[in-house]
Design a protein around this nucleic acid. Structure first.
Length: 593
RNA sequence: GCCCACGUAGUUCAGCAGGAUAGAACGUCACCCUCCUAAGGUGAAUGUCAGGGGUUCGAAUCCCUUCGUGGGCACCA
């Protein structure tokens, strides 16, 4: 990689010139392209070298010798300019490496567990989940491309209070669709306890259709008498059946109903994620943590660390000792566990499974949890820096120029609806293309428009255009005047190239394009380091721009044969790099549009 | 009140391990298709980098502070 090469050469030169103050300088791209392709600013060395920057630059340049790279000095800057043989070799490298071009070994096969989405199995995925899903799967690709061994996991919260709420809501809906006149109560309080979404009505219908006998059992065991109708759902959800819950038959039925509901919902979530091109390696069940007694085991481990104490009838974890604002409850007064307890057990399990690095994508609303979980890892005697939590900000949906408030009162727009509207490529690209630290304005109309205002189409069009040129090169042609069929310009795209013919005239669009292609390796490396797939989307935009620019200024076909061959090669290289970049994002690179 | 993120052109955003004249897309205006996809390109206009301090040769970038926006501060998940 050119930048890397220059960086090493400069560092080596500084070692010769200023052995006692050797350091790396930043290699950057000059804003003014006339200065060169890369530049190093020597000013930081001024205080040690005790001479003016231009003098320092002169001294350093003496020790720099990179094949086919020119150096020049302007005041305190050393500028580097790649000569044509260097650029030619870049094209060859891309063609040779093909789909592997851009890979690096940053990860050094480190085993990474990437956890993302992890929605509750209590309802449809919403827009926010779509952002984590798209970004997470792109990050997984990016990390794999950078030498990490990535395992993608979805944590299924199939235990805890929300499961009771789901059960109760589902039960009410079953009564409702069977004509018992019950329904989910309205009001703010109700929203905390019930899932009012229509999807449970559909699910209750499906249930009643598939398992008609079950409803008879429900009537028997839950025994909602006629007079309860008026009082409504509160009776069902209240003490009436809770006291009877101890009956084994009732419990079995309870579990059966609940399992039916959440496995159906989970199935729908999985299907939708699949459709989005998101493929998890594992689905980790919270419930299983309890069944395998992992939660208790992790409490024992915490006890061993001496960071557990009892207060007010509850068991506390001294997370405050590890930088959390305050200590946290692990076992509640009533003997049940908090959400955190299971989460700690989950993270212990990840470590026990041999993952060296844990990366979680969480919504920003979970940011309070970061310190707690990190604390629990510290208590285990591990370095909590192995856990990286990426906090993602919200998604604002823009429809017809108006922001659709995602508040509690308005109807929730689901990911499925968005996907139906915008399509997979548009949804993924838009979800990924912004820094996860900023709130995302998702303009639905723009995202689904097939116009130049839409960055997805701009970029995909560049790929289609490259494909079109290559296709035309080997296709039969018609003579415009005579209508005669002419043979293809090229028999095949497999030929020897002399790249010197690329450089016969002013060719700055060509230079820029090649330098951009070359910088893909650097872009991947930086994006992987920052865990930031959006940087790849940005790279794609830049590359597409350079290619469109090249296209309008440089004819590829129907020029002198050697020139044509060299330019075809360059188009092939562009197509390859675009494809590799799109593959990381999981967005398709269409052959034609 | 405390914690996190954000504030850059009319709009959406890059740039932020300090460095040369602050960039792009969209929108606006003026142009470019005999010929590889005009879903493209060229040119022009557009800025108190939220405000104020500080650090230094140099700050959009680092530090402090004020203001604004969003999110979070449970023995809920």
């Amino acid at each position: 990689m050119l930048k890397e090469q220059i960086n090493e050469a400069v560092a080596g030169a500084i070692k010769e010139f200023l052995p006692e103050h050797a350091q790396n300088l930043m290699i950057e791209k000059p804003k003014n392209p006339e200065h060169g392709d890369f530049a190093a600013n020597v000013s930081p060395l001024a205080r040690y070298a005790k001479m003016p920057p231009p003098k320092i630059a002169e001294n350093i340049v003496k020790y720099i010798n990179i094949d086919n790279v020119e150096t020049s000095i302007i005041s305190g800057f050393i500028n580097f300019r790649a000569k044509t043989p260097k650029l030619n070799s870049c094209i060859e490298k891309i063609i040779t490496e093909g789909e592997n071009f851009g890979r690096n070994n940053l990860g050094n096969s480190e085993k990474v567990l990437l956890e993302y989405v992890s929605a509750n199995p209590t309802g449809p995925l919403h827009i926010g989940h779509g952002r984590w899903a798209a970004t997470g799967s792109a990050l997984a690709n990016l990390l794999e491309f950078s030498g990490y061994d990535v395992y993608q996991e979805f944590y299924v919260n199939d235990a805890g209070n929300q499961m009771n709420n789901l059960f109760e809501s589902f039960l009410i809906r079953i009564y409702e669709v069977n004509g018992y006149g019950l329904t989910i109560p309205e009001g703010e309080n109700s929203k905390k306890k019930y899932y009012p979404g229509e999807y449970l009505i559909d699910l209750a219908r499906k249930f009643s259709r598939e398992l008609p006998d079950k409803f008879k059992q429900i009537l028997y065991y839950f025994n909602v008498p006629e007079y309860h109708k008026e009082i409504g759902a509160y009776i069902i959800a209240g003490s009436d059946y809770v006291s009877r819950r101890k009956q084994p038959e009732l419990m079995a039925l309870w579990d059966e109903l609940l399992e039916y509901a959440y496995t159906e919902i989970l199935k729908q979530q999985k299907e939708l994620l699949n459709r989005l091109g998101v493929n998890f390696d594992g689905w980790f069940s919270e419930k299983q943590l309890y069944e395998r007694d992992e939660v208790n085991k992790s409490i024992e481990k915490l006890k061993e660390s001496g960071k557990i104490y009892e207060k007010d009838g509850a068991l506390w974890f001294k997370s405050g000792d590890y930088g959390d604002d305050q200590d946290r409850v692990i076992v509640k007064q009533d003997g049940t566990y908090t959400y955190l307890t299971a989460d700690i057990a989950y993270h212990y399990d990840k470590i026990a499974r041999g993952f060296e690095r844990l990366i979680n994508i969480w919504g920003a609303d979970h940011h309070g949890y970061v310190a707690r979980v990190k604390a629990s890892i510290e208590a285990l005697g591990k370095d909590s820096s192995s856990l990286e939590v990426l906090l993602g900000q919200m998604v604002n949906l823009i429809v017809s120029g108006e922001q659709v408030r995602m508040g509690k009162r308005t109807k929730m727009i689901t990911l499925r609806e968005l996907l139906d509207e915008v399509g997979v490529d548009g949804t993924r690209y838009w979800m990924i293309m912004r820094d996860i630290n900023t709130t995302l304005d998702f303009d639905v109309d723009l995202a689904k428009s097939c116009s130049d205002e839409n960055p997805v189409y701009y970029a995909q069009y560049a790929h289609a255009r490259a494909c079109s040129i290559l296709r035309t090169a080997i296709s039969e042609r018609f003579d415009r005047e005579t209508g005669e069929v002419l043979p293809p310009l090229m028999e095949s795209l497999d030929f020897e190239v002399n790249f010197d013919s690329l450089w016969q005239e002013d060719s700055s669009p060509t230079r820029n394009l090649i330098l951009r292609l070359e910088s893909f390796e650097d872009a991947v490396l930086t994006a992987a380091r920052c865990r930031a797939p959006y940087m790849i989307a940005r790279y794609i935009q830049d590359l597409a721009k350079d290619f469109h620019h090249f296209y309008t200024f440089t004819r590829v076909l129907n020029v002198e044969e050697n020139v044509m061959k060299a330019r075809i090669r360059l188009v092939q290289a562009t197509k390859q790099v675009l494809k590799n970049a799109f593959d990381i994002l999981g967005v398709s690179a269409p052959e034609r549009m």
